[in-house]
Amino acid sequence: MPARDRAPARSTAGRPNARRAATGAARPARRPAERAAGDPVVVGAVPAAARATGVLLALAGLIGAVAVFPTYLTVGGTTIDVVTGPLDALVALLAPLAALLVGVLLARGRVPRLGLAYAAVSGALAIGRLLIELHQGHGSTARPAVEVLAGERVLTSSVETGAGWLLGVVALGLTVLAGGVALVAWGRTVMEDAGALDPLRPVLAGVAVLLGVAAVLCLALPAADVPDRVVTDPVTGLETVVTVEGPQALLERPGLALLGGLLLAGALLLCSVTAPSLRPRLGAVGGLLALSVFVLATALAGMRDAARSPEVEWTVPGMALLVVGLGFAGLTVLAWRWRTGTTVTAGE
Rank of each mutant, 00 (worst) to 15 (best):
V42H: 08
G115T: 02
V68C: 13
I127T: 04
L155E: 10
V235P: 01
M1W: 13
F69W: 09
A142P: 01
V207H: 10
W165C: 02
R253N: 06
F328N: 05
R31F: 12
V242Q: 15
L97D: 03
S158H: 00
V333E: 05
T232Q: 09
T175I: 13
L270E: 12
L217Y: 07
V184N: 09
V148L: 10
A257V: 03
V293N: 08
A119N: 08
V121Q: 06
D228Q: 13
W336M: 14
G137T: 02
L172K: 03
L264C: 09
D233I: 03
V241S: 15
L322N: 02
T332Q: 11
V176P: 14
H135K: 04
V241Y: 15
A92H: 08
L183G: 15
A297F: 06
A265W: 01
S122N: 09
A50F: 01
A329V: 09
L270G: 12
S272E: 08
P40F: 06
R27D: 02
V91T: 09
T71G: 15
R229A: 14
R308Y: 06
G318V: 01
A320P: 05
L131M: 06
V154A: 11
T315C: 08
R304P: 04
G266R: 08
V190K: 07
A37I: 02
D193K: 04
A284Q: 05
G173S: 15
L288G: 12
R279T: 10
C218E: 05
S277A: 12
L183M: 15
V344H: 10
R201M: 07
L331Y: 02
A49I: 00
G261R: 00
P28S: 13
G179R: 06
P86S: 10
G330P: 06
D39W: 05
P276W: 03
P310C: 13
L219C: 11
L125H: 10
V41W: 09
G327C: 12
A95F: 03
G260F: 01
V295E: 01
G54E: 01
V42K: 07
A306T: 03
P227F: 05
P28V: 06
G180R: 06
P276K: 02
G168K: 00
L149Q: 03
G139I: 00
V66A: 15
A329E: 10
S309Y: 04
G286P: 07
